[in-house]
Amino acid sequence: MEKRVVFHSRTLPYLLVAPQIVITLAFFIWPASQAVVQSVLTQDAFGLSTKFVGLANFEQLFADPHYLSSFYTTVFFSTSVALLGISSGLFLAVQADRVIRGAMAYKTLLIWPYAVAPAVAGVLFLFLFNPHLGMFVFALRSLGYDWNHALNGPQAMFLVVIAAAWRQVSYNFLFYLAGLQSIPKSLIEAAAIDGAGPMRRFWTIIFPLLTPTSFFLLVMNIVYAFFDTFAIIHQVTKGGPGDATNIMVYKVFRDGFVGLDLGGSAAQSVVLMVIVIGLTVVQFRYIERKVHY
């Protein structure tokens, strides 16, 4: 008997995807469209007076040199978080995959940090690197290195990158581990019999076979670094010192929720949305070609 995976009913497929569509509309498309509408208005916090101002909010943004510097900060921050998170995740997954005894314990421990909310991760690292009572600061001082991220921009950036990437390592680890386990053992054994060393096996067999995972993680990590990290910035540096860690999503949060500048904040989130959509398109068009499925 022929086994067919085809829907006979015309409405059933639509019904099955309907919940997902409804959720996407209600929680993604609708708020995003609201942001677009809000970005061409100026409105007081209470919505008592609303004025259509066209692109004035955007003009103000791009005329502000601090906004442009925030753009470069964001690029640096996101690239660092994604690269650090992905490479550490890959390294740990490869190591954990080779462990024979107690593998489960290692895996569980490595996945744990993902359960920590970004804000809490921020607080953790804030304590470790607190200029007055942090453990790491104490160690660094005894080595003669003065740590003060309240005034040293590169140190502050280093701190928020570590805090943001740390949590993401678990997520990347999980996907890489699954990727590694789906690589047929016979392939690696054959290479070993042919005389390829561990490094050679990794770079010519394992890594190319992991490219779909790496590609997926690249997209996810960039999105994470762009959108989900404001809580870390808020806890650790509040964008300072100067504007050294003032990434775009944090500015959206500060201006919108703390400053109640709805139009300006909405314009910034539209810019952010366009950037991430653009990045994702670029990634799919150019990087995906190098992916082996």
Partner: peptide, 21 residues
Amino acid sequence: GYFAQARDIMYEEIENIFAGK
């Protein structure tokens, strides 16, 4: 108006002063 943002700006510039920039 927008005093919360103004305080952020003051912090940024104060930190630039104290960092010697």
